[in-house]
């Protein structure tokens, strides 16, 4: 008897859930999850601000999740759970492009729209939106670093992970720019992996300064390198002898910009990237995917005239990067 009651009530609850679930979509409330590489770092905290703001603006059910630590398997697990929950669309910032392919295929097979950011080589995606062309972003870092170094000497590049596609493309772009414009510069060692951890950045850069007496510049891929390099340079009293230009946020690297340990940080506003991804996802769900085309204006700074990749038709680039130096560091509060 008891069992029967239990079974019926469970069935009832399930059907209730189904009804409410379909009801909410019928009202036009899409459920869209933004899944990032790792939750709780300043970068993605800022993206959450954008996603939350956009949820308020549009009235859709938008939220951001991510693994507690940068780990491909955990990100896959989160996406699996979201597929099971039956979200309408997924906006993904992959930690490892390859590791996500199977689960993203599964999502698309289940009818979920998949929008990807920071992963230009992703195969299983409805659309890939990049804040900029990765090679151009890296080239711009190297342009500034090369100028500070006077076009001469050894430099070292860092990436969060050797499997992180975008960061490695930035560094590829930076190295290509150096070879073309600063022939007297050279890499002291192949790019190093620092796991998005400022402590590891700090320790490895200090070690590299010992190992390579000719090291004069650091080209930072991941955001924490700006803090790690800043601390290492300050501690060794190498201001004006060793230079740093790379990705960073004012809230993390501000103190080192101000005391001259590092020269410039470059970033794009993750809040805007979060909004753009969700805007595109909603457009796809509403059947208005043709708002995303070459030269289109998506209505956000840096995305006023997006560019379609000539070979990969579902890949689009914005042109939104910001360079922050000692002079304008006060203008940013994140």
């Amino acid at each position: 008897m008891f069992r029967k009651v239990m079974a019926t009530s469970v069935l009832l609850m399930c059907s209730l859930l189904l009804i409410t679930g379909s009801a909410s979509t019928a009202e036009g409330n899409f459920r869209i999850a933004t899944v990032v590489k790792v939750d709780g770092i300043a970068w993605f905290d800022r993206m959450r601000v954008g996603v939350d703001e956009y949820a308020k603006e549009t009235g859709h059910d938008l939220w951001m999740v991510g693994p507690a630590k940068a780990d491909a398997a955990e990100q896959v697990q989160i996406i699996e759970d979201l597929i099971a929950q039956g979200v309408d669309a997924l906006c993904i910032v992959p930690f490892s492009v390859e590791a996500l392919e199977p689960v993203l295929k599964k999502a698309r097979d289940a009818g979920i729209i998949v929008i990807v950011h920071e992963a230009s080589t992703q195969q299983n995606a409805d659309l890939i939106i990049e804040a900029f062309d990765n090679h151009a972003y890296g080239a711009n870092i190297m342009k500034q670093l090369g100028e500070h170094m006077g076009g001469e000497g050894g430099y070292l590049c860092t990436v969060g992970s050797l499997t992180s596609k975008s960061q490695n493309e930035w560094i590829d772009g930076a190295i290509a720019y150096q070879k073309e414009h600063f022939p007297n510069m050279y890499e002291v060692a192949p790019r190093i992996e620092t796991y998005d951890d400022a402590t590891i950045d700090y320790q490895k850069i200090k070690e590299a300064l010992v190992a390579h007496k000719d090291l004069k510049g650091v080209c930072g891929g991941p955001m924490p390198t700006s803090a790690g390099a800043g601390l290492a340079i300050e501690e060794r009293g190498l201001q004006g002898k060793v230079f740093f230009v790379g990705t960073g946020l004012p809230s993390i690297a501000g103190q080192y910009l101000e005391n001259g340990a590092i020269q410039a940080i470059q970033f794009w506003d993750p809040a805007i990237a979060g909004k753009v991804m969700n805007k595109i996802a909603i457009a796809f769900l509403e059947g208005k995917q043709d708002i995303v085309k070459d030269q289109a204006d998506l209505g956000f700074p840096g995305f006023e005239s997006i560019r379609q990749d000539p070979e990969k038709k579902n890949l689009f680039y914005g042109a939104g990067w910001v360079v922050v130096t000692k002079e304008n560091v006060d203008e940013y509060n994140f």
Binding site: V38, G40, A68, D197, T199, A227, G228, L231
Partner: peptide
């Protein structure tokens, strides 16, 4: 490390 990072 001069940062108070809650995911450290």
């Amino acid at each position: 490390i001069r940062l108070a990072n809650p995911r450290d």
